[in-house]
Amino acid sequence: MPVDPSEDFARAICSDKWDEATGEMSASLFKGENTSVSRLALCPLDETWDLFHRQVEKPPERTLRRIGTMNVGRLQQIGQGFPANPTALTVEPDPLPDFRSHAVIPEKISRGLANAIIRELTVHEENPS
C-alpha cells in the first residue's frame, strides 16, 4: 500500500550528487527508477542524519552532504503536472532490516521531471552540534 500523500520523505544527498563548490545537485538524484527515500513519519529528520550516515555513507568515496525533504502529495502533483510526460508517482514502503523507514519511488523518472522535483526539494544542512 503506497505511503499516504500527507507524509513527508527524505532523500540523502551525497558527495557524488552534490557539488560543494557550486551548491548544485545532480538530476540523477531522482532520475531513473526505484529511488530510495526514508519516511519522516517513521524516522524524524534529526534521526535521519544518523540513519543516512550509517546506511548510505562510505568514506572516503561517498559522504553525506545534505538531506532533501518533500511532501509525498507534492511529489505526486509535480509528477502529474509535468507537461512533457505527466507521471503518476508513488512512494512505496520497502522496510529493510536496519532501515525500517526505507521506501522507494518505483516509477521511472525522466531528467526533466527529476529537475522539476529537485527545484521544489527543501534542502537541509546538518547541524554541526
Binding site: 557524488d16 557539488d19 563548490a21 557550486t22 548544485e24 545532480s26 538530476a27 540523477s28 531528467r111 529537475n115
Partner: peptide, 27 residues
C-alpha cells in the same frame, strides 16, 4: 560555474546554468 557529478550508472554529468539561470545538463 559548471558542476560535475557522478551518476549511479557510473556516468559523468556536466551541468551549468545559462544566462537566465536555466539548467544545461549533459550526461
Amino acid at each position: 560555474t559548471p558542476s560535475l557529478f557522478l551518476t549511479d550508472d557510473g556516468h559523468i554529468e556536466l551541468a551549468w546554468r545559462d544566462a537566465d539561470g536555466r539548467a544545461v545538463q549533459i550526461e
